[in-house]
Every structure is written in C-alpha cells, then in structure tokens.
Design a protein around this nucleic acid. Sequence first.
RNA 1: GGCGAGUUGGCGGAGUGGUUACGCAGCGGAUUGCAAAUCCGUGUACAGGAGUUCGAUUCUCCUACUCGCCUCCA
Length: 458
Amino acid sequence: MTTAKPTLKLHNTKTRKREEFVPIDPQNVRMYVCGPTVYDRAHIGNARPVIVFDVLNRLLRHVYGESNVTYVRNFTDIDDKINARAARDGKDISEITAQTTQWFLDDMAAVGAIEPDHMPRATAYVPQMIAMIEDLIAKGHAYAAEGHALFAVDSYKDYGALSGRSTDDMIAGARVEIAPYKRNPMDFVLWKPSDADTPGWDSPWGRGRPGWHIECSAMAHELLGTHFDIHGGGNDLMFPHHENEIAQSCCAGDDFANVWLHNEMLQVEGKKMSKSLGNFFTARDLLDKGVPGEVIRFVMLSTHYRKPMDWTEKKAQEASRSLKKWRDLTADIEAAPSIPAVVLTTLCDDLNTAGVLTLLHEFASNGDLASLKASAQLLGLLTEELGGWTERGGALLDGWTERLTVAREKAMETKDFVEVDRIKLLLTDAGVKVQMGKEGIVLAAGPEVDLAKLEALK
RNA sequence: GGCGAGUUGGCGGAGUGGUUACGCAGCGGAUUGCAAAUCCGUGUACAGGAGUUCGAUUCUCCUACUCGCCUCCA
C-alpha cells in the first residue's frame, strides 16, 4: 500500500493564492509560529492559532515523517506589558513570565496541542538580536539615535508587500508614532533604552531592551536557519509584526519564510473580543466551567482557519454531543492503521478541518469506526489524552442508577410511575441524561451537568 | 482614508461549472410505562445586478451589506 504523498496546498498570504506546498528540504520541513507574550492567562482567541498550527504540525509529520519536521513557537518574555504587570503585582518579571508560560503550556495541553520542538524565550536570545541589529546598521538598513536603534523603512523597497500597503498609505493613516529621532515616521524600533527600573541588557547603544519584532527574526534565524518553509500566526500580526520581521530578516540577508499563513480572528457570540473592550475570557475560564478541552478543539476546527470564527455556547454543546457519541462508538475500537485517502486529501486542501469533521460524521453513520478513530486522531481528537471527560461524575451517578433502577422495577409491577418520574426529573434538572431502556438504566453527565446540585440532592 | 476577508437552507458550516453536502434543530414513523437514546424517512439555500457559457451557487465585473487590520492584541 504505497500511496504517493498527498499534495498539500496552502493559502500563502504573501502571494494571496492557494499554492502547492513544496518543502525546501523534505527531510527537514521547518515552521515558525508566533507565540504568546507571557503576561497573563491565554484568552480563548490565543488558542485558535495554537490549535490550527498544531493540526498543521501533525499533518506535516504525517506526510513527511515524524522526525522530518521542526516546529518552533516562541515565548515573548520581554515586553512592556510584562513590565507593567510585574510592577503592578510587585513581583519579579521572571516570576510573572515563568508562571504565565506554564499556564500557557497547561492550557494548550488541555486542548490537545502537542508541544513544538523548540519553544525559545526571547530573553535567551538577546545577544543574537544585538548581533542582528549591528549587522543591519552595518548594512545601512538601520541606525542608532538617542539610545535607540531603528529600522530604516526606506532602505527596504518591498516594505509593505506582505500586507499590501505602501508606506505612503500608512503615513496617511497618521497612526504612526512620531518621534524626533526617527528619520521616517514609519521607522520602527529595534532597540530602546531602559531606565533603572526597567529590565535591560548592555548593548552598543547603551543599556536597553529589544523591540518586539526583532526577537522572531533572530530566533527563527538561530533555530531554523536563513530560509525556512512556513511562518504562521494570527492575521492581526500581519502588520506590523510580520511585515517588520520580513524587513529585518531579508535586509540581514536571510531568505526567511516561503509560505505565510494567517488565521482569522475569533469572535464571541458574534462580537469582537478584544482586550480594550474587555469582553474576553480565557481558555482556563472555559475549562474551569467544565467545557472539556476536546470540545474547545472541536469547535475551533469546525470553522476554516481563514474565516472569522464565532465562539458560541451552542457550538460547544453540539460539539460535546458529537464527541460523546463518537467516543462511545469507538471506545473499544482500534484505530485504522492508515488514514483514508479522502481525509488526507481534504485536510491537505488548505487545512479543511471542517471538511474532515464532515467525513468523520459519515464514518460514524456508515459504521466505519476504525477510520473514524484514526482520522479523528490525526486532528488530535478522540485521543487518549483528551478523553476522560465523558465519564465525568460517574461514581456519583452510580448511586442514582441503583436507586432509579429499584424504583422502576417496582413501578413496572405496580404501574405507578410517580416516584420514577420524580427522580428522573431531579436528575434531568441537574443536567444528567437519563436513558431507560429494556436492558436497564444508563445515566450520563450532560454537557451542562451541575454536580454540586446533584450532590446536594443526595 | 488605505489594506484584506467574507455574504450558502431555521441555525452552524463545507463544496461544486450541469447530479444528495454534512451536523444540529424541525416534521413523519419504529421503539419506549412516558421520555431519552437509537434506527428509518423527509426539506425551502447559494446577497443583488450584468457578463462569459449549451448551462453558474461555482468563473469575470459592478453594487450592497458584514467583519477584521492599519494602535497592545493570535
């Protein structure tokens, strides 16, 4: 059963086209994804790129081989938001970043994301950043001024190509920070000075800290080389972050990334979620509320990554039901040894995860459970790690099952079902699914089960 | 103002130049102490206009609307 490698097609932001993916080196497929700034819990929107690129990572490994893919996702642990948080809480910066980093890893593991091969932290790459800035200055693409180092946008004629804008357009927008030391208002900071209370590193331009964009250029260079395959992130990063990364890296002499992938933003119940509006919630909030990580993952994958996705309670409930059903069906089934071709073809078509979910529904109704399990696991669903939630409340329900069974047996003889119905109503109100069949009674915790309420009724 | 994405049946959401998406909900039936679950059956869709074509929801252009980015944000 040797099948040709499926053709992977990806929508490249750089060319605005869906292109066939041709790795630079099939033995070493390299992907860099912009990771979080670690100053607080990851909100639910942060989980989207993590899950999307986790699926891509799994797919690349499936296609090119487990050991032939290198996936890098950074942690930004130098940032003024972190500094502000540390000052606010009276904590050391490293304490904030260490804790937040761990939170992030925990929360993302809960939604089934495999850890990347490298998770570099900006603080560990400051010398590389300084070296890169020095190189840019030497090549005439950057300049030092008043303790800053700035990138000279005019020195890179393709500046704006990724996001499709010209410097003139952007200046017209008048949203750039005007500073006396800038030659061009669009010039962005590579290095900025730190005062005594702010973390800083010694540099040729004095004690200071790097600007945001340079870290990704420096870390990608260090870990993936001058030329790699895929660079990903949320589409809000397209400008200025990725535009600036390209400018820096290309001017430093790197070829940088071939394919740029950007996921669309997430909304909540039809509204934009943003920090400034304050209507966001974290992945942990959902998990604590009892929404299983697997359900979060399913919902995320049910919309194509390049479309805006709306997080709704209803979707979470539907996802929960589908997953529960599939888990019941495949509980004792061994996953098929190979992934059905149609699944690979669909997933390889610019990561059509929603299309694959459709196929999973079909496998379920056709009874092709081995394919269902194998295919779901390629998406990181129905895995061992994410299981367990379907049995939630099992022990607590055993007593009720017993009690209801006795009452029902009695009622079957007396034909008086009042007590049975009473118990059933109690359970139903607490979010328990009650199934009474010929073979007996089965109780199951529904998605919105209220265990506390159930405990109180005991 | 500039850039970009999108507009599919009650809801969610794929896909296709000519044929059933799929899921949920709904409706009818089987089953059930009643329900649930399960099984079987069942439906009105492709924003508007023009064009290309034998034929367009699918390609091209225009219009309308929605959303995102341009400022920390995935």
